[in-house]
Design a protein around this nucleic acid. Sequence first.
DNA 1: CGACCCCTTGATTAGCCTCAACAACCGTGG
DNA 2: CCACGGTTGTTGAGGCTAATCAAGGGGTCG
Lengths: 243, 243
Amino acid sequence: MGSCLAERLSHYLELTENEHAALDGIEAQQRHCKRGTILRREQDRARELFVVRSGWLQSHVVLGDGSRQIMRFFFPGDIIGLSSLALDHSPETIVTVSDASVAAFNREKLCDIFENHPRLAALIFTVTMAERVSISDRLASIGRTSARARVASILCEIFARNRVMLKGELSELQLPLTQEDLGDATGLTAVHVNRMMRGLMDDGLIARSGNKVRLVDEKRLASEANFIDRYATIDTSWLPPAR
Amino acid sequence: MGSCLAERLSHYLELTENEHAALDGIEAQQRHCKRGTILRREQDRARELFVVRSGWLQSHVVLGDGSRQIMRFFFPGDIIGLSSLALDHSPETIVTVSDASVAAFNREKLCDIFENHPRLAALIFTVTMAERVSISDRLASIGRTSARARVASILCEIFARNRVMLKGELSELQLPLTQEDLGDATGLTAVHVNRMMRGLMDDGLIARSGNKVRLVDEKRLASEANFIDRYATIDTSWLPPAR
DNA sequence: CGACCCCTTGATTAGCCTCAACAACCGTGG
DNA sequence: CCACGGTTGTTGAGGCTAATCAAGGGGTCG
């Protein structure tokens, strides 16, 4: 019943009691959602943020011609909706990819953190900067690498990010994503994702059974994908002292 | 001789004297660079940030096969290097695209802002969130739109972002970018960028003479590009009070 | 003036998309 | 229990977009 956000941030820094107290209020309202629930639509007025407590989500936009681009997947511990802080209408649609539970909190809470807990604010800032790097990595992947490398890269990212919260080993994972989801995240069609995954299987880089995927040769997979794990550690040395 | 960062932030919010004072120290060391100067290499140890005072810059990565992806262009008033706050080695190379002058400041300064100027910290946070949205827009552009739309989109973005500082009218702009730069930013080859620009010219959407580009029919250009200006206004209503 | 960079255009190739058909696997209701 | 529709995965054939390869032109700088 602790805060998921606190748990996530604790991976990078030991929080003080004061800081814990500030985060405790955040996840008061928890909400359980079935797979496919739309938490927010593009252009919705967005005044609240979410912390993922369990399950996976994604955010996407739909372009003029009906095609969809998935911007990002979200896993337990992730904060959703920071990007709509700057805009008062949401730039993207947010949907659950599996059954999930999220905790909503509003901007005022974040405001309070900036005002009274500078170290916490700076830490959140830093974590979102790591996210930004990871989005940029995806940009390079989509812009400059082959279909095969893109699929390899999204798999690496999913595994790497899930490791942060699960800590330790993780070579097999139940993917609640369809191949169309993977395609919309990598800028490919579902058909082509299918072919690429078959290729990765045939070459012994991954293995599948049902929805489960196992990274058989993660080193080679990461190397083909040009993948770098941005989440393993983050630098907190510059943060102000805790208050 | 005021702070460029202060000027940029003032576009979104009226800064107090205290806040101005905090920003004044930032741009003490100014540095003039010729076009093509590398300010930072991928993997460099990065302890400082930059504010652009004049000129344009870009950040990019080079992939295993030698291809280059430009992550972002930077214009006067932009902060460079925030993404390396989280990592102690730079994820990208930073280069001047034209002659430019930048002011370097170090993390301690930012730390001070978080500690003593919560409103300023929150504002910087908000601006970087707007940037994140803009990066996501590029992701969708590269992932899901045609070459023509991508070129249209990068042009729209360049104009929109330059308008923030220049304020007011801006329909013609001297681009210090080569077509290869545009290609590396949009995930295309220089050759294909050339053809797309010709197409946009022939259809009367843009006009060129030398390096100058003019948006003739910006509305149609933006619509073809699926472009949305994320910088025009940003929401500052949630910020804590100034201190 | 030559070397280099950048732009431009044409011809050909390759990677990924589209369309299509079918199989496997659900949850639902009869 | 099975029949059913709906969704997802799989595979093949063919087409289109953008890459590649190639050649030439203009501009600029030493």
